[in-house]
Design a protein around this nucleic acid. Structure first.
Length: 207
DNA sequence: GAGTATCA
DNA sequence: TCGC
């Protein structure tokens, strides 16, 4: 397995999942998305919609609506608990996180054509000791990660299907985002686009 | 308590 | 999380 340092605390594993594992994951996700459908998050206060659609797996899921950002145990549309995180996804966390407790949230972000994610920090969690683990599926995303000060230098990474990226430690609060997709770079998803799974520990583990 | 992973 |  190739580990590429990106910035201190951030490691990129290109081709972490092979094509067969990616296909199995997409099949699993298709079933889970029927139970927990994608919803459209909006910005707090303004109600501006995100270009990315999302859902979650795990005991807690990240949502954004007019009231703010938060983690909650129930799907905002169906009011059902999020489906549990499949074992093959938990195995990725166990292999690369270096963290001795399981993730509580698996945010599923779906990028259609033209979707992007502005530069931001992940800071709605209580536990910053655990890293954030990301898996890319489908078209390549032009990702960018910098430091903890806004406006600082950033490093571009082309995240292709099957790539895993881990950011923790000095990079746990790094600004990061997705500028755009590179169309035609994957045939994994029938209708194109990109799915990004991000695993996070939300609460501090109990005794 | 405010602000926020928007958008230009 | 930050800044008061």
């Amino acid at each position: 397995m190739t580990a590429v340092p990106v910035v201190p605390g951030c490691t990129w594993y290109p081709g972490y999942c092979d094509a067969e594992a990616q296909r199995r994951l997409v099949e699993t996700l298709r079933d889970l998305l029927r139970i927990a459908p994608l919803f459209q998050p909006v910005m707090p206060r303004t109600g501006q919609p995100f270009s990315v659609k999302m859902t979650n797996l795990g005991s807690l899921g990240w949502v954004s609506d007019r009231d703010g950002y938060r983690y909650q145990p129930l799907h905002p549309v169906t009011s059902a608990p999020w489906p549990t995180i499949p074992t093959e996804i938990l195995a990725i966390w166990e292999a690369v996180s270096g963290y001795p407790h399981p993730p509580e949230a698996c945010l599923v972000n779906w990028y259609g054509p033209g979707a992007r994610m502005g530069l931001h920090q992940d800071r709605d969690e209580e536990d910053f000791d655990a890293p954030v683990v990301s898996l890319s599926l489908g078209e390549t995303g032009l990702f960018r990660i910098g430091g903890t000060v806004k406006g600082g230098k950033t490093v571009p990474v082309k995240l292709a299907s099957g790539d895993v990226l881990v950011f923790g430690g000095a990079a746990r609060l790094a600004y990061h985002g997705v500028d755009r997709l590179i169309p035609g770079t994957s045939g994994l998803l029938k209708d194109g686009g990109r799915i990004n799974l991000t695993l996070r520990r939300v609460t501090r583990p109990g005794p």
